[in-house]
Design a protein around this nucleic acid. Structure first.
Lengths: 234, 234
DNA sequence: AAAAATAATTGTAAAATTGACATTTAAAGT
DNA sequence: ACTTTAAATGTCAATTTTACAATTATTTTT
């Protein structure tokens, strides 16, 4: 079989914008780049797409290589393709954003990548166009989380409503009314109240909830309006 | 400067999912592929990304080459990268979807591409993974148009409310209540009533409206809820 | 000229949702 | 027993949504 003649071939990479939540702040998992150019600089975790892989596989492999986790929530964000985004050689990057339960994150034995969690608001300068990727990922996260039950992916299996609210407040950098917030999330019917309470943060303790897996799958793409007028939030 | 060693380079193409509206049905602009493989088969308009171009430029160039139009609404849909999506040679495709006023569409002099408009529900078999692209584009269109004032891009500068409603009904394959629909779109404040009426379709005639360009830009990303619970529509 | 026909335009009341607001409650510590 | 702390819950007014039908402007027909 012949090939398409006189066309430019280029490298294709995937880069992962990995979000986590430590109970207080929204965080971003970054690595120190291990090769030239920009070796030693802070970077998104990424890698080249291999001959036998599709993009999702490459992204999942890349994420697993760093975190040890599988089955993580991940979606394609966008393709970035400025001709000179990588000064070494033209490289197209397809970015994926991932939401992980920060407690599930296992530092891989070798810690080959010198990874660190950074608060999103206080991340270091990143290589290439990675800052732009992070910015778009954050915008997408805010967009989607306003209307879909997405942020649960950042929490452990059991969580309390106050924890959930802190997460929303971190994502939108805004305060929400406790009463209205609780009413709203409970009205989705996605939460199942547990018998146990979380006792670390308060004297009274807050009941744990779990996701109703069946309803969660069913309503994941429904429009639920968690955040009113998210376009108007600063 | 050196290059990254031992990595696969591949072709990168853009493909355009071009939507139009003829007053009745949502339509898709397709071409007959002019080269092997799959020469003569129906295909999305596409092209390879050139050395000096970024992705948006490549997509805009491709769209203009086919339609003669510039400044058209276009957004990146997704990157498609299965290893064997093009049997000739590995080619990653970044797809863009475009909304054009079908009346503005100028058949280019040569009609080099043998382009035709097809009703979306009755499009021919497409090459490679183009059907999948169209499917995703349609899903995205429905998703976005439900909450953002997007479909105006498919209409001429002047349009009537009944025309707009027919468009929404075509996109969602559903009927809407006239009174509620009209109230909803007018309440956005985006429409400016004209003095003239459209007289072709009815005895009484329907007033033309135009978009308030300023408000349109301002509210384009706002959440406007044109369609209630679009996730539940068949 | 009057009547019929056609599609555009407009209104209203009940129901559901949202937004703003404060008090009560469970448990631990003093 | 009292204090402290954060969790949980309730209400009312305002807004938005939904369901539903009558009126109007104009052309065509009689």
């Amino acid at each position: 079989m012949t090939r398409y003649s006189r066309q430019t071939r280029m490298l294709v990479a995937v880069d992962c914008i990995i979000f986590g939540f430590d109970g207080q702040d929204l965080k971003l998992l970054l690595i120190k780049r291990g090769f030239e150019p920009e070796k030693g600089k802070w970077s998104l975790m990424g890698g080249f797409v291999q001959t036998d892989e599709d993009l999702e596989q490459a992204a999942a492999r890349t994420l697993t290589k760093l975190t040890g986790l599988e089955g993580v929530y991940m979606e394609q964000l966008a393709a970035f393709g400025s001709p000179d985004r990588d000064p070494m050689e033209r490289t197209l990057s397809v970015s994926y954003f991932a939401l992980i339960d920060i407690n599930q994150y296992k530092q891989q034995i070798t810690d080959e990548y010198k990874a660190e969690w950074f608060p999103l608001r206080d991340a270091p300068k990143l290589i290439f166009d990675h800052a732009k990727m992070v910015e778009e990922a954050q915008a997408r996260l805010r967009y989607k989380a306003a209307i879909h039950p997405l942020l649960f992916e950042l929490l452990p299996t059991r969580f309390t409503i106050p924890q959930l609210q802190i997460l929303f407040e971190a994502v939108y950098d805004a305060g929400f009314d406790k009463r209205n917030f609780s009413r709203k999330v409970l009205s989705t019917g996605l939460l199942v109240k547990q018998k146990e309470k979380e006792r670390a943060t308060s004297k009274r303790g807050a009941f744990y909830y779990k996701l109703d897996k069946r309803k969660y799958s069913a309503k994941f793409h429904a429009f639920l309006n968690f955040v009113s007028d998210p376009g108007n939030l600063k």
